[in-house]
Write a protein that binds this DNA or RNA. Sequence first.
DNA 1: CGACGGGGAAATATCGATTTTTTGCTCTGG
DNA 2: CCAGAGCAAAAAATCGATATTTCCCCGTCG
Lengths: 238, 238
Amino acid sequence: MSPTPAKSRRDTSGYPSLTEGAYAALRHGILTSHLAPGSKLVLDHLKDQLRIGIAPIREALARLAGEGLVDTESQRGFWVSPVSVDELQQLGELRATMEVMAFRHAMETDHRLLQDRLGEAWRSFKEVGQRAGETEPLNDTWDERHLRFHTALFCGYESPAMLRIYVNIYARLERYRRLGIDRKGFLAGVIDDHSRLLEHVEAHDIEAGSQLIRRHIQDVVEIVRSNVGWTEPRARGS
Amino acid sequence: MSPTPAKSRRDTSGYPSLTEGAYAALRHGILTSHLAPGSKLVLDHLKDQLRIGIAPIREALARLAGEGLVDTESQRGFWVSPVSVDELQQLGELRATMEVMAFRHAMETDHRLLQDRLGEAWRSFKEVGQRAGETEPLNDTWDERHLRFHTALFCGYESPAMLRIYVNIYARLERYRRLGIDRKGFLAGVIDDHSRLLEHVEAHDIEAGSQLIRRHIQDVVEIVRSNVGWTEPRARGS
DNA sequence: CGACGGGGAAATATCGATTTTTTGCTCTGG
DNA sequence: CCAGAGCAAAAAATCGATATTTCCCCGTCG
């Protein structure tokens, strides 16, 4: 009935609670490096920026700390987790391993389902994926559809346990991707990997698919690593 | 100078903040299933039990939610994450994969370091590990040393990224271990796996070590699965 | 000149009270 | 007997104020 859904006095944004709004805002800020890696997250400032009390902010930060996007030290506050080449590589390795695991599992469990999900995700992705290879930088839409493509690999798992962990790792890598690929665009080859993977699925070639996944992710790690300006761990700063 | 370290009016326990105390208490309660899987976590009750305000409790719960030990739904509160056979298997598979990955990496990177760390951890573990095979149930000390043994495998990684994720998965499995092994004691063979792994390290046999790790973890998953009373996902309850 | 320490400003951590939302129950009409 | 409206109690979410701790500047002493 009501066009605006049950206006409450508080909630400004479209989130069900202030905590969720703060969580989304902070997470996005971190993943886009609008909040710089290693920088201090001062509660009072965030309070003024987000126009909400400190309680929901602390709660959102605690959640992000649990996810590894924020560091916290008792009585000292919160920081955006720093980035480092070493972490980039470890996350990349782990992501590749998990995807291959999921891929094999899905291929062996329900090949048809995987083919459907992946095909659907690919069609959605390629609309926006191609453009990013030319002029546009990686943006939210791109990343959302790209993520959807890769999570389709996990369709063989019923419980969301594996997927949740994967998504966390993916998110942590998203920050590196944007840091290292942002302005340079993307190698067309890396984009094409996705359609090639789909072909391997259709051909029921598990080995080729696994290798492709590994290389795909390793390539991105390398691209990022060669583009970023820092070589050593970026410790705490402003 | 001060014998009691800077007595503050608040902090009762030995934790640097109430949030940390609540976090530790809740985490422990969940891992031991003293807080039953799927059960509602009512803020007012926790407030009375822990004798602290709601703010630090919410913060601790938010952190646990980020780690996957607690589920939360906007405006509806917090629940202990439910358990399921499917999740047990996925976590087991992922743990095995990560350990093998770490093992290979450590063997190839700095074999000597791994041997030292693992040997040290083994000596510490076997004191308490043997007893658990007979009469004693798995307890905090056992689990702490057992964890230390397995985390020694990660000594090849500099950045703590991989280790953090592993520890999270390990913890989530700890709950299942205690649920399924608690009273029945432990198969001696499973305990011996650890010394056998050490032998493989000394013999520099990567393949044998990897296989042992996989089987070791898979065995525990099987033991738990056959001992627990539930077969299907345990949804939300009291 | 550098270690030390006082002291106020800044920032964090926590509480108690208030506002909103959800949950159960009861009553009513069909 | 069931669906749904209407309340009251319970629980969650949030705020503003306060207590506590850390940070940082600066003067002093060796």
